[in-house]
Amino acid sequence: MWSAIKRLYHQLGSPKWFYELTSRWSPWFLWIGSALMLVGVIWGLAFAPADYLQGNSFRIIYIHVPAALLSQSAYIMMAVAGLVGLVWKMKMSFVVGKSIAPIGASLAIIALVTGAVWGKPTWGTWWVWDARLTSMLILLFLYMGVIAIYNAIENEDMANKAAAILSVVGSINIPIIKYSVEWWNTLHQPATITLTKKPTMAPEMFIPLVLTIIGFYCWFAVWVIARTQNEILWRERRTKWVKSLLNTGAKH
């Protein structure tokens, strides 16, 4: 078993193996994610009943909740990748972490903007310094900090390590986001989906939400794979396998 784990570790650390493996996975994530998003969004926007308190304004949940959940999950993935790079010196983990950062930042922006749009009819204001909203804003700043490090530090090794350290340290904000509605008096409603409790939403509202969440995660995989592959091609551009790959693509 240990030999299998060791072999997998070395394979994951190989840019060529990672590129070839993810090239096979990416189309599946794309088509599955697109199908789930199409069904989930149409179901949620056109066929799910209006909320008895919020009316039709609740329908933004089908974009807001997936984006908010995924922005937090993406940061955890980035922190784990950074930790693996720092502890086990796997360079591919730094590449994955770098690829996640701008995608996670985009998702955090979508979550904040859709939350503001949802908050206007619900709370009567676009923004309040609520514990959940403030901690989500901090999450965006953390993403921007990681991106800024990669843009500001020319030395690749130093940039990787500095960004990884910020990712790991900043992960303390994730449980703050999750439990902010329980620890403080907040306007934000409790979590819509939990693993320990039955959903409070009606099935015809809950099922399309789950579909859009899974669809978002599939699309996220496609985006990360694409950015990671581009980074691999740039870093390995002088190797024989990349030159061969580019020459083959040029012929087609």
Rank of each mutant, 00 (worst) to 15 (best):
Ile225Thr: 09
Ala116Met: 10
Tyr19Trp: 10
Ala148His: 11
Lys251Tyr: 15
Thr114Asn: 04
Arg132Met: 00
Met77Gln: 06
Ile149Gln: 01
Phe94Gln: 03
Tyr19Pro: 00
Lys240Gln: 12
Ile153Met: 07
Leu8Cys: 13
Asn160Trp: 04
Leu53Phe: 12
Thr186Gln: 03
Ala226Met: 13
Ala162Asp: 06
His188Cys: 05
Leu133Ile: 13
Ala111Asp: 01
Thr200Ser: 12
Asn56Phe: 14
Ile100Glu: 05
Arg7Pro: 10
Ser93Phe: 06
Ile172Tyr: 11
Ile63Ser: 02
Trp127Thr: 01
Ala131Leu: 02
Lys197Trp: 08
Leu70Gln: 09
Leu112Met: 06
Phe220Arg: 01
Ser23Arg: 13
Phe216His: 05
Ala162Asn: 08
Ala163Phe: 01
Phe47Gln: 10
Gly104Arg: 00
Leu21Phe: 14
Leu195Phe: 13
Ile165Asn: 02
Leu233Met: 10
Ala46Thr: 15
Ile109Cys: 03
Leu195Glu: 09
Met136Pro: 09
Tyr179Ser: 07
Trp241Pro: 02
Asp51Phe: 05
Gly44Asp: 07
Thr212His: 00
Asp157Gln: 14
Trp31Val: 12
Met90Gly: 07
Val169Tyr: 08
Ala4Cys: 14
Thr22Gly: 09
Ala46His: 12
Ala250Pro: 12
Thr186Arg: 07
Leu70Ala: 07
Lys161Val: 08
Met90His: 06
Ala48Leu: 08
Arg235Ser: 04
Pro121Val: 03
Phe47Met: 15
Gln11Ile: 11
Leu45Lys: 12
Ser106Gln: 06
Ser57Asn: 14
Ala46Asn: 13
Leu187Cys: 09
Leu246Val: 07
Gly249Thr: 11
Tyr9Gln: 14
Trp123His: 08
Leu137Lys: 10
Trp183Tyr: 11
Asn151Phe: 10
Tyr9Met: 14
Gly249Tyr: 11
Trp183Glu: 05
Gly44Ala: 00
Trp184Cys: 00
Thr194Asn: 08
